[in-house]
């Protein structure tokens, strides 16, 4: 494991992260141009910025879906920026929960089965987690829809299934790329309330949004432009850095 000098409490630490896309020949897109960032456990971070500024690229890197072209990324103290593919998969499964704009549920599986998917790849016997998964479904208000398929649910319900799924492995970090982008404002609010509660319960949240109202829920708002964090706004005090929730759940 890495012994890089960084505060042990940082859950995400970006050091000079760059991401370039080679488009063949001379052409090259510099999606991220040396980003430094530290996120402490329990914090709620929103990323804003114009289209193409590199928000999704950054979130994908945080989520270990991709590797940076240059720079180092420490996830919970471990340098994951040069990890082999299998270990990255492992890290995603164990430490990160994803919530996507378009829900991304698996169509042929039921609600409960969708919630169980991450367990499968942790080598877990899903039968031992039946109760746990039902609890999560109840937490997001879908206790009565366990055996429905995604196409039998509304958008908001699907997104809530995705949230339950993101929690099943008890991750350190929940990443959401425009989670309310496909929802009407009321359903969006319900989903965001749910995310707020997760944060209050101690989960670290990183969320990409175009909506100022959404961003106000976060502790910190990062404004990106042209592959860099242009400025940062602190909405409210960060939780204590030892990872304890700022407000008891």
């Amino acid at each position: 494991m890495s012994t890089a000098p960084h505060p042990p409490e940082a859950i995400i630490r970006f050091v000079g992260i760059e991401k370039r896309y080679d488009l063949g020949g001379e052409a090259e897109v510099r999606a991220l141009r040396g980003v430094d960032l530290t996120v402490n456990p329990g914090s709620y971070v929103a990323i804003m910025g114009p289209s193409g500024s590199g928000k999704s690229t950054m979130l994908n890197l945080i989520g270990c879906l991709d590797r940076p072209t240059a720079g180092s990324y420490f996830l919970g103290g471990t340098d994951v920026s040069r990890m082999p593919d299998d270990e990255l998969s492992e890290a995603r499964g164990r430490m990160i929960g994803f919530i996507f704009q378009s829900y991304n549920l698996i169509a042929q599986l039921t609600v409960i089965e969708n919630i169980q998917v991450p367990l499968l790849y942790q080598g877990q016997d899903t039968r031992n987690f039946e109760e746990h998964c039902v609890k999560l479904a109840e937490l997001v208000g879908l206790g009565d829809r366990l055996h429905h398929r995604p196409n039998q649910l509304s958008g908001g319900q699907q997104q809530r299934v995705a949230i339950a799924r993101s929690l099943v492995n008890d991750p350190l970090l929940i990443l959401a790329d425009e989670p309310t982008g496909n929802l009407d404002s009321r359903t969006g609010r319900e989903v965001l309330d749910l995310i707020d509660r997760l944060n209050v319960a101690g989960k670290t949240i990183v969320l990409v949004t175009h909506d100022d109202k959404v961003a106000t829920r976060a502790h910190r708002v990062l404004h990106m432009k042209d592959g860099l964090i242009e400025r940062e706004v602190l909405n409210r005090p960060l939780p204590r850095t030892n990872g304890e929730p700022a407000v008891p759940a």
Partner: peptide, 16 residues
């Protein structure tokens, strides 16, 4: 393809 992407994001290794 999309299902594959979802599974990979949720922790599936290549061999899975």
């Amino acid at each position: 393809t999309r299902e594959i992407g979802i599974r990979r994001a949720l922790g599936a290794k290549r061999r899975d």
